[in-house]
Every structure is written in structure tokens, then in C-alpha cells.
Amino acid sequence: MKVQVLKRTGEISATSIAYLLLFAFGVLMVLPFYWMIVASLQIPENLVSFPPKWWPQPPTTEHYMDAMAKAPFLLYYRNSLIVAIISVGCSVIFGLFAGYAFAIYRFPLQNLFFILILSTLMVPIQVTSVSLYILMARLGWIDTFPGILAPNFASAFAVFFMRQTIKGMPGDLIDAARIDGAGEVRIVTTIVAPLVKSVIATVTLILFIDSWNDFLWPVIIINSKYLRTITVGIAFFKDPYHISFGPLMAATSIATIPMIVIYLLLQRFVIKGIATTGLKF
């Protein structure tokens, strides 16, 4: 009896330590966002006052007006969306078909091609950016949408996951469809795609996050203000010679809050998707 009570108190204290730790780190996780929002609403005097003001008193929207006047954020949003939708769309569709081909067919040079595609994962854009840039220059694609999209029309990650998933599917369904006289393209679009839709959704989501947050390549290839994506827009919103934090925090709020809200709506799905793909990878 006594032993059991002891054990239980031990367990309770362990759980409370766990809660405490999780809570403390949780606060650290959101603090920057909290401070960003507070600062963006704070009147200029309060931004430099000491001790820090933890609540905007009185709140003001002047920094948002400033930020919107200084940079066309809606345009940046549109550009990011165009890039994300086209690159993710292409990657997923091409990935589905290629994944199907690698999973179902046997054909000459199959392994070589598969390894070649996977090996591109080993050569990050950081390595190839210089040569890719020179290639874009030759094609006249610098500072154009095709230029921004070029390295992201296809994704090795998408091909790999589609292949793994389709391989695990029962083959009978495909054989049955073939006997019914369905063409290969139709099999992929009407039979395979619905079966792997959760993987398609996961891959879409992960690629979307990647594309939305992409920076190195866009910052290299984009020159004109009309093409800037949201990350490039934010990085260049900062004026290192005259930093005014109010408008800067308003700008980062504009850039991040919609994504955070969307994430919070989809969070279970996002986390599950990333956990499963991460582990299999």
C-alpha cells in the first residue's frame, strides 16, 4: 500500500515536471510571434521605452498603413501563390505518374533512372545555384516566372513517396481495370489517384510549405519588384540603414499570420503528414 502511494506521487511529480517543461518551452516558441504582433500595434514611443510594454497601449494601426504603403504585399502574396501552385501542382502530377511507372512497370534502365532522380536530393540547390543561374541567363529566364519555377517543376521527394505508396497497393485492382480495357492514363487518374489521395495531400502540403518559404533561389533570380515573392519582399523590406521596427514587424505579421492561421486549421493533418513522411524517408 505504502509503496504504491509513493510510486504514484513520484509519477505525479514526473508528469508535473513534464507539463512545466513543455509549458516553459511552449512559451519560448510563441514569444517571438507574440512580440512581433505587440510591436506591430505599439505606438512608436512604446517601442523604445524601458521597461518593455507587454501590451499595446494604446494600440495603433499606423505601422500597418506604413508597411502597406511602402511595399505591395498583396502582389507578393499573389506571386508566392502562383509559384507555389504551379510548382506544387506540376511536382505532384509528375510525381504521381513517375511513381506509378517506377512502382508498376519493369523497363530497361529503370533502376538507373530511379537512382538518378533520387541522387538529385543529394545535390541541393545551394550547390547548383551558380550553374543554374548561368543556364537561366542563356535561356533569358532571369527575372521571369519560368526562371523562379525552373528547379521546382518536379520533386524527387514526390516521386519517391508515390512509388513507395503505390508499391504497397494491391495489384489486383490495376489488373482488373486493365482487363476492363482501361488505358494506362485512366488507371492512374481514376483508380490509383483516389487510392493514394492521403499521400497526395501530404506531399502537396509539404511541397507547399517548402515552396512558400523558399528563399535562396528566388532571391538570386528575381530582380524586379513586380516578381518578388513574400520571402524576398520581407527580406528587402528591411532597411539596414534606417531600421524602424514598427513597420517591419507589421510587414512580418502580414507575411506570417495568414500562414499560421491556415496551419492551425490544418495542424493535425500537417503534423501527421510530416511525421510519417519524415520517418519513412
Binding site: 548561368i134 537561366m136 541567363a137 529566364w141 532571369i142 533570380i221 530582380n223
Partner: peptide
């Protein structure tokens, strides 16, 4: 420079 190289 990059714009020069790209003719843009």
C-alpha cells in the same frame, strides 16, 4: 551583375 549576365 546577374541582370547584366541575363541581358535584363
Amino acid at each position: 551583375l546577374t541582370a547584366l549576365a541575363g541581358g535584363k
